[in-house]
């Protein structure tokens, strides 16, 4: 590959291996669960359910990225990230269990229709999407997750076990975001004709339609839910600003057309007065709410892999 971009992905892979943690490291019965009052529980339950599913869908996104990774080392890193996002979902499910937010069966909460649509698209198209598309979308979602959702949760909940869990999760996420952007640099430093070919592939009708029908309402619904819960919009703004700031720090990321498109979309998402909401996102949320889950068919088996049990025997 002709590139002047240099980053030691092997060293990063070693760090990732060294920093692994397990649900079994956490004392899930430690005191502090009582800080979850009935009022807080009612408020946080839907938020936690969404969070678990975002991590789980993110995990599936990394599985697709692994199939596209430009080198074997980056592929291995993505395989670890796939597992780590699943670990985050598992740990958050264990927190839900600790707080009495799960039913008798301890099963993961049912995903909402917009999450189900995202699952469907990932099952059908995830592995065929061009690398630049997913590789740009994922850091944007990670910045939002890290910068807004998780900070909100930690402001609301004082349970020390929750804070312990998120120290692990945040340390993982810092590495995810580092790698996400280093890979964007690597892609951006590649030959221009390849970038153009991939960008044109992203303009295929089913990809554009997928993004509009699936991710627009998914993100908008989350956005409105959490703002309604009391998340200051400033936090969302900061999260997206971080995406722009880190992206512009690199020398080559700005050569990727998908980066500019997503950055522009993100700016519209956080600005509630933008016509984007009135003309596109809000109607999409309403439209998709009429889709019966049945027409989506059975999702692939990965959606059943979540567990809150630290030990499997």
């Amino acid at each position: 590959m002709s590139t002047t971009f240099d980053y030691d992905f092997d060293a990063m892979l070693q760090t990732i291996k060294d920093k692994q943690w397990s649900l079994a490291d956490i004392d899930w019965d430690a005191p502090g669960a009582e800080t979850m009052t009935d009022e807080l529980r009612a408020k946080m339950q839907p938020f936690m359910a969404d969070l678990v599913w975002i991590e789980h869908v993110g995990a599936r996104g990394f599985a697709s990225l692994a199939k596209k990774a430009p080198t074997p080392t980056i592929k291995r890193i993505y395989e670890y990230f796939h597992a780590e996002e699943q670990k985050h979902a598992n740990a958050e499910l264990a927190l839900m269990k600790r707080w009495g937010m799960l039913g008798e069966d301890g099963k993961a909460p049912e995903p909402n229709i917009n999450v189900k649509l995202a699952i469907k698209v990932l099952d059908d198209y995830g592995d065929t999407l061009p690398l630049t598309g997913l590789a740009t979308l994922i850091p944007l979602l990670e910045c939002a997750l890290d910068g807004a959702l998780v900070k909100f949760l930690l402001d609301e909940v004082s349970d020390p076990v929750c804070h312990e869990v998120f120290r692990h999760i945040n340390s993982d996420e810092a590495r995810h975001i580092t790698v996400d952007f280093k890979v964007l640099e690597l892609i951006g430093a590649g030959p221009l004709h390849k970038l153009l070919i991939e960008s044109i592939a992203l303009l295929q009708p089913q990809v554009v339609l997928g993004l509009i029908v699936v991710f627009t309402p998914l993100i908008n619904k989350m956005r409105d839910n959490i703002v309604a819960m009391g998340l200051p919009e400033q936090k969302l703004y900061n999260a997206v600003k971080r995406f722009t700031t880190i992206g512009s720090r690199g020398d080559y990321t700005s050569r990727i057309p998908a980066y500019h498109v997503l950055r522009a979309q993100a700016a519209m998402v956080i600005d509630r007065t933008s016509p984007y909401h009135r003309l596109l996102a809000d109607p999409m949320v309403r439209l998709t709410s009429f889709i019966p889950a049945k027409v989506l068919g059975k999702p692939q088996a990965w959606v059943e892999e979540l567990t809150h049990e630290p030990i499997a025997s």
Partner: peptide, 19 residues
């Protein structure tokens, strides 16, 4: 991926210990 061995089995990166 498996990242560690423990007395009862192995730990894998999805956060679960398999006995």
């Amino acid at each position: 991926p498996i990242y560690a061995f423990v007395p009862e089995g192995v730990r894998s990166a999805e956060g679960i210990e398999h006995h």
